[in-house]
């Protein structure tokens, strides 16, 4: 069984974002780029499955759509333990564009399980994974919080409002995963970092795809009114404020 984990290259989650060129582009000055947190957890889970011989998982690959600037992030995924990587050499124009590039690669390379994180922490679209499944005409399971392989059968926990469902799905398929899929992201060890240097990154040139959306501009959230403090000895005043001023209780 072959697993592919799709990874996105995003600003570190503590970044204070700023925009340039009339608020149309992210100011990338000084930004630390990392593997999208959900993709990192996906990769961790894929590697856990490969570590367990009973699952029959033979390889874990990662794929990324982006320019050469993303190579450090791809190398990091290889250092964490991915066997090889694919990079589609293109600036990601929108989710449909990215999903189309990934679908093209997957048609050529063939995987049994394709894993995508629920969203990227920069654009928060939650769309690439399911778009990909439709482009490939694969089944997809979204909101996945646990993924196991038991006697060759894929067993998934899928989050629903107020609970979860245990589902079986046939391969090939796309899993869109979220919190719970792995406990902690796996950290690259020194040996992994050394080995990553020689692991292959296969390069694809992009296919022509017209994006469906365009960012017109970004704006910052409106600043909140400053905090009104209430004496710790008199919380009743807080309740009165919530009742009479904010009118929320």
């Amino acid at each position: 069984m072959k697993i592919l984990v799709c990874i996105s290259n995003v600003p570190d989650t503590t970044t204070k974002v700023k925009f340039v060129e009339g608020n149309t582009k992210l100011d990338t000055t000084g930004i630390q780029w990392v593997i999208n947190p959900w993709d990192e957890l996906s990769l961790t889970r894929a590697l856990e499955l490969k570590d367990d011989a009973s699952t029959g998982v033979k390889s874990v690959s990662v794929a990324h759509v982006g320019s050469i600037a993303a190579e450090p992030t791809i190398r990091k995924a290889l250092a964490i333990g991915a066997d090889d990587a694919i990079r589609v050499n293109a600036e990601p124009a929108d989710a449909y564009y990215v999903a189309s590039q990934l679908a093209e690669v997957i048609k050529k390379e063939q995987f049994d399980i394709v894993i995508c994180g629920i969203e990227s922490s920069d654009f928060n679209g939650s769309t690439v994974g399911s778009m990909l499944s439709e482009l490939l005409d694969y089944p997809s399971v979204s909101a996945v919080s646990s993924l196991k392989i038991e006697n060759g059968q894929v067993v998934i926990s899928r989050e629903i409002d107020g609970g979860k469902e245990i589902v079986h799905v046939s391969t090939p398929f796309v899993a869109v995963v979220q919190k719970g899929i792995a406990k902690e992201p796996r950290i690259a060890a020194m040996r992994g970092i050394m080995m990553a240097r020689t692991k292959p990154i296969k390069l694809y040139e992009p296919i022509a795809v017209e994006p469906l959306t365009q960012v017109v501009s970004f704006e910052m959230p409106k600043p909140r009114a400053s905090c009104k403090f209430v004496d710790a000895e008199n919380p009743k005043q807080l309740i009165e404020l919530l009742q009479n001023e904010a009118k929320v209780i």
Partner: peptide, 24 residues
Amino acid sequence: SNNNMGKGLAPRLSVRLKAAIGAG
């Protein structure tokens, strides 16, 4: 909805109908 179900369905629908999606 931009919930678990909507996040799974809307992007598939977007590809099926070649319809742009505004998520969240």
